[in-house]
């Protein structure tokens, strides 16, 4: 592609979108640099679907603008469409057609034809390990294969930027890991920019840079490590059969921020490495395990918004 390396792959400037009275996006600005894996993170209802629709040229924002490699998503939509590969939550494959037929059609929509198209379809099927299922109807493929098939379709016109909307929703854990391995591999092989929306924090951890979205606003914009360092505390988790008692003791003895969670007792404390020894001494015999970790993106999100990222907001 003839774009300057310094030009942002995707840029949003003060994007605002309203559905009637409800504001889905409020002055959202972000710059996605070329070659990065950028995550837009937020619960349902945070506005990430609206943002995705605007960036993929399917929706006109109420205010503000967005560009892809310098082209405006509204004024130069067909140029933008040529530069984007888009994977939606819903399948863009036709179940009644074979995988290969689907890819041929998809390539034709992007202006490809003849031998060049057939070669690219075969290459994409190979790269995504789908060659042996190419002649099967898509409705007979597993969810994970279908996802890879959609990805193959999006790569045919060799777009510099890939947009993925919650790409692993509905996949089982194995297929999910497999999909991310594929993404990582493709990114390395094709040096693409990838922008992904997700509400899953372990997926957010894989990104170079994150925009945390809450109620239509960007509440944080940084790398996962920067976000965690900003938190200023470590997390000590104690697995135990008596979590309530331990929480009370920790609070009384140290005055630290402690509460119960799914895993047992969760303690937030500065310089956790210096404190964990004392806890082990104190509670010897009363816990199954005790672990020290950095805060997760989940913690970051909770601290900045007061809600857990996997809780639904209102609306979609």
């Amino acid at each position: 592609m003839s774009s300057l390396p310094t030009e942002p792959a995707v840029e949003a400037r003060n994007l605002t979108h309203k559905y009637g009275d409800r504001t889905a996006l409020r002055k959202v600005s972000m710059v996605v640099s070329q070659g990065s894996l950028f995550g837009i993170v937020g619960p349902n209802g945070s506005g990430k679907s609206t943002l995705f629709r605007i960036l993929s040229t399917l929706q006109k924002p109420t205010d503000g603008s967005a560009t892809v490699l310098g082209s405006d998503t509204l004024a130069a939509s067909s140029l933008v469409r040529q530069k984007l590969g888009v994977v939606f939550q819903n399948s863009i494959l036709d179940g009644k057609l074979t995988l290969r037929e689907n890819l041929l059609h998809h390539g034709q929509y992007y202006g490809l034809g003849g031998r060049r198209l057939r070669e690219r379809v075969d290459a994409a099927l190979g790269q995504l390990r789908l060659a042996d299922r190419a002649k099967d109807k898509v409705e007979t493929l597993s969810g994970g294969m279908r996802r890879r098939g959609e990805l193959a379709g999006c790569l045919l016109h060799e777009p510099p930027v890939l947009l993925l909307d919650e790409p692993t929703v509905g996949l089982d854990p194995v297929a999910r890991r497999d999909f991310w391995d594929t993404i990582t591999r493709i990114r390395a092989e094709r040096s693409m920019t990838i922008l992904v929306t997700t509400h899953l924090m372990d997926e957010a951890e894989r990104c170079d840079r994150l925009a945390l979205l809450h109620q239509g606003e960007v509440v944080a914009l940084a790398s996962p490590d920067e976000l965690k360092a900003d938190m200023g505390f470590d997390v000590i988790t104690i697995r135990t059969t008596q979590p309530d008692a331990l929480v009370n003791e920790v609070k009384a003895a140290y005055g630290w921020n402690a509460r119960t969670d799914d895993h047992g007792v969760r303690i937030e404390v500065e310089a956790g490495h210096a404190q964990i020894g004392g806890l082990i001494e104190r509670f010897e015999g009363r816990f199954e395990s005790i672990t020290l970790s950095k805060p997760s993106i989940e913690d970051v999100f909770f601290l900045r918004t007061g809600v857990k990222s996997d809780e639904s907001g209102d609306g979609a």
Binding site: T57, L58, S78, Q82, V86, F88, N90, I92, Y110, G111
Partner: peptide, 14 residues
């Protein structure tokens, strides 16, 4: 409804 149209609408086809 199935999502196929979205894939067509984001292509550069007029």
């Amino acid at each position: 409804r199935d999502g196929y149209l979205q894939g067509v609408l984001v292509s550069p086809m007029p």
